[in-house]
Design a binder for these strands. Structure first.
Length: 807
DNA sequence: CAGTGAGCGAGCTTCCGCTTGACTT
């Protein structure tokens, strides 16, 4: 047994540090927080100075037992959790739970996992910083109070099972407000003129310095210059410039770049990064620091010298911009920069390459650029054509890596290449002039990574919570990740060639299309409006920044944590009571107009199972008619026409084999109901226009598929069948499904044997019913269940492959 | 798996931040 026990947060970190420290040290991990406020109720005694009640988290009981045993046997326990607010609290909880003797306990910190950093830490231990611990307790308790007081208000006033919190509610607000801006946005049209010239024999594209507001102005300009033969060059300007590399990755910037360059979702990025980290290939992936260790700087310098030459190297140390950063770790970088490529699956390779390039580029020289601007007269005073060109004089870091931008419209960059040599007074011969009608764009919807960027700017959330927050607001059905198809609109284009006449064309384009963006749902908008109205201080974009300042004051010893909570809670709790007392239940009801057929009012509102439209009211003698909104429709924006369209379903198309064929939209999309059998419509089928013939085709297709599923029907009792399922053969009696016994042959086994094997009636062998599995999923946290789903999905694929090989 | 839409009431839900595990349908 070694004399020293070192406790860190992450097991991968423990492995590395153990190597640095040698045999006198045992290094263990506690897997993050070990104790939290009790799950039931507030866990905070408000009357008694906000005294918290903590309990050991269920999944940490085992590890705590082990750490307790080890700590008793050790001469010294080194608490080496992260050097930030949460890390300090973990050390304190550990010292309490493990009942550590202060004389035998030391607190050490390091913010990089390198040998010198660890050795330095061991030589400079300190005690637990209780100011920092209290700042964490204040943070934890405030979040609990906000979350557990706001959520029940929503259960009562909007819908059960909803949630609100300091972080998630502001995230939803950002998305809702952006969507409203988009709804209210009226595109304005303008007319852009581009000239194609020839200067000293080289073609040059130049754009007019002004955009016309009206077609009349634009055409009149074209008419004026149409007769001109050539234009003079008014000025030639050369401007040197430089571009600098971006800082190495933090969690947030990694998520953004992986989204732009690799198309990863934020949770996918974190999943892959976690694997790279566990394999020892990159440093810690949940960080807000852009700092690089001395070891890393040296290794990166060597790599640059070898790959590109020393003239490409420039040592740089970056500073974190975000105020809320706690910088307990390094930036995300390759553990061994000399490793350019790694083994692993395709995604691991791609993400590693991105991290490698970004890290290496961050230590490279600026790129030197020469920008040239040529101004060409237009024949109309104050208007002229401008051509810009950019030449890279020294490529520097651009040799390796360039950050992407979210800006999709690159049509404004009129030129980027080299321009011909020319001087003032030279002639620009024009070839053709083009005028194109354009429209202003609405502000863009948030992508997942874009939302993370915005949250980080506002100081809301932490590297470890960006991905879970995004999945929470989707799970609560406040927002959804969706794509929009857009609509067609027409625009005009004019073209005049030298010596020719002006020609006008009508063209078409798709507008309003969007891919994988966050869009608020009806529930999201209603909950947001309610929260903004009754809890404006919590929903304020500056709320987190304000309380963070106070947490800092606590950490610095200038503010008592209990005083801070008292000052916050009293007014906050009053707003909660006021909301419970004074607010109406939210129904989201909106009158759309009058039904021309019945003369009754048509309303859109939130029904028990989601958004609906309704004709007539429940007080009428005749029962009202209901229809669910389609997934892409919103209560806030649906029109009377669209609502009436929804009542055209279900459609009865006629008969097939003497039974009615009915088309409707259900929970799982459009379907056909015939003879009590449901058949899904294909992707290309529209339930409003599908014909009887096509329905019959689909019904027959389904029958064939059903038949293909059957492996065997038992003659003695045809209710019992062996079928082909997603996970191999399974047994059914028409009501319940059973697992097929592992080593049996489905074609030979007798029914008696089979019944014995599966132990029909024995519940253990049943597939778990829906409710049980939902409960199970709910127990685990948002991310872990997501990961679980993905892992299962992967295994399914594997299994499929292997069964295919066997057969 | 494919329905429903009133109202009541029992018993439940819920926060943010640290970290990674282990089902066999």
């Amino acid at each position: 047994m070694s004399k020293n026990l070192v406790i860190v947060e992450s097991p991968a970190k423990a492995k590395t540090i153990e190597k640095f420290l040698g045999k006198d040290y045992t290094v263990k991990s506690c897997f993050g927080h070990i104790r939290d406020l009790v799950k039931k109720g507030h866990g905070v005694d408000i009357e008694n100075n906000f005294k918290p009640t903590y309990e050991i988290q269920e999944d940490k009981i085992k590890i705590i037992e082990e750490l307790k045993k080890l700590s008793k046997k050790s001469e010294m326990v080194w608490l080496a959790s992260d050097e930030d607010r949460e890390g300090e609290a973990i050390s304190w909880h550990l010292s309490e739970v493990l009942e550590l003797d202060p004389k035998k306990t030391k607190r050490i910190v390091f913010h990089e996992i390198t040998k010198p950093a660890i050795e330095h830490a061991i030589k400079h231990p300190r005690g637990i910083d209780f100011n920092l611990v209290n700042a964490q307790q204040a943070r934890r308790i405030l979040d609990r109070l906000v979350g557990f007081e706001l959520s029940p208000v929503l259960w009562k006033k909007v819908k059960t099972n909803l949630s609100a919190g300091r972080v998630q509610s502001v995230a939803v607000r950002l998305i809702v407000e952006r969507e409203r801006e988009i709804q209210q946005f009226k595109p304005e049209t303008y007319f852009k003129v581009t000239g194609h010239f020839e200067i000293n024999g080289i073609p040059v594209k130049a754009e007019l310095n002004e955009k016309f507001k009206t077609e009349k102005e634009a055409v009149s300009f074209l008419e004026k210059i149409q007769s001109k033969d050539s234009f003079n060059i008014l000025s030639v300007e050369k401007k040197p410039g430089k571009r600098s590399p971006s800082a190495p990755f933090t969690t947030s910037t990694l998520q953004q770049e992986a989204s732009r360059k690799l198309g990863f979702s934020v949770s996918q990025t974190m999943l892959v990064a976690q694997r790279l980290y566990e394999a020892g290939k990159i440093t810690y992936m949940r960080t807000d620091s852009v700092n690089l260790s001395e070891t890393a700087l040296k290794a990166l310098k060597d790599v640059i010298g070898r790959e590109f030459g020393n003239e490409y190297h420039q040592e740089r140390q970056y500073k974190t911009k975000s105020k809320s950063a706690q910088e307990a770790h390094e930036a995300i970088r390759p553990t061994y920069p000399e490793t350019k490529e790694i083994d692993g699956d395709a995604n691991e390779k791609k993400l590693y390459e991105l991290i490698w390039k970004r890290s290496v580029a961050s230590q490279m020289k600026d790129a030197e650029i020469e920008k040239t601007i040529i101004t060409i007269e237009s024949g109309v005073s104050s208007l002229h054509f401008i051509a810009t060109g950019e030449v890279v004089v020294f490529d520097g870091f651009l040799k390796l890596y360039e950050e992407s931008t979210d800006d999709e419209s690159d049509e404004n960059s009129s030129g980027s290449g080299r321009l011909p040599k020319c001087k003032v007074g030279d002639i620009a011969n024009w070839q053709e002039i083009q005028c194109i009608q354009r429209f202003t764009h609405h502000p863009p919807r948030y992508t997942e990574a874009g939302l993370v960027k915005k949250l980080e700017e506002l100081g809301i959330g932490r590297p470890s919570t960006y991905a879970p927050t995004i999945s929470t607001i989707q799970k609560r059905n406040y927002v959804e990740k969706a794509s929009l198809n857009g609509t067609e609109r027409s625009y005009y284009e004019w073209m005049v060639k030298k010596g020719g006449t002006i020609q006008k064309f009508e063209k078409k384009e798709i507008t309003g299309a969007d891919r994988n963006k966050l869009i608020p749902t009806d529930i999201g908008m209603m909950v947001n409006d309610f929260l903004v109205e009754y809890f404006p201080q919590i929903l304020d974009y500056g709320f987190t920044a304000k309380v963070e300042d106070e947490f800092d004051e606590i950490a610095n010893g200038n503010l008592e944590w209990v005083d801070m909570l008292k000052a916050f809670y009293k007014p906050f709790h009053k707003t909660v009571e006021k909301a419970l007392d004074q607010s109406e239940r939210v129904s989201g009801e909106r009158l759309l107009g009058t039904d021309p057929a019945s003369g009754k009012p048509v309303i859109a509102r939130l029904g028990k199972y989601g958004p609906i439209v309704q004709i007539g009211s429940s007080e009428d003698e005749e029962k009202p008619k209901f229809a669910s909104l389609r997934k892409d429709q919103r209560i806030e924006t649906i029109t009377l026409e669209e609502a009436l369209e929804l009542f055209k379903l279900p459609r009865v198309l006629g008969e097939f084999e003497g039974k009615e064929v009915r088309v409707n939209i259900g929970r799982f999309g459009p379907y056909i109901l015939h003879d009590n059998v449901f058949t899904s419509l294909g992707k290309e089928d529209d339930p409003y226009s599908i014909t009887l013939e096509r329905c019959i085709e689909l019904i027959e297709l389904k029958r064939i598929k059903e038949k293909e599923k059957i492996i065997r029907i038992f003659k003695e009792n045809p209710d019992w069948q062996i079928l082909k399922g997603r996970w191999g053969p399974y047994v059914t009696d028409g009501k319940k499904n059973y697992k097929f016994p592992k080593n049996a042959d489905p074609l030979k086994i007798s029914l008696d044997e089979l019944l014995k094997e599966i132990g029909a009636g024995n519940t253990e062998n049943h597939r778990p019913d829906e409710k049980a599995s939902i409960k199970k999923a709910k127990k685990t946290s948002a991310t872990s269940s997501e990961i679980k789903e993905k892992k299962t999905a992967k295994k399914t694929v594997k299994k499929k492959k292997s069964t295919a090989k066997e057969s």
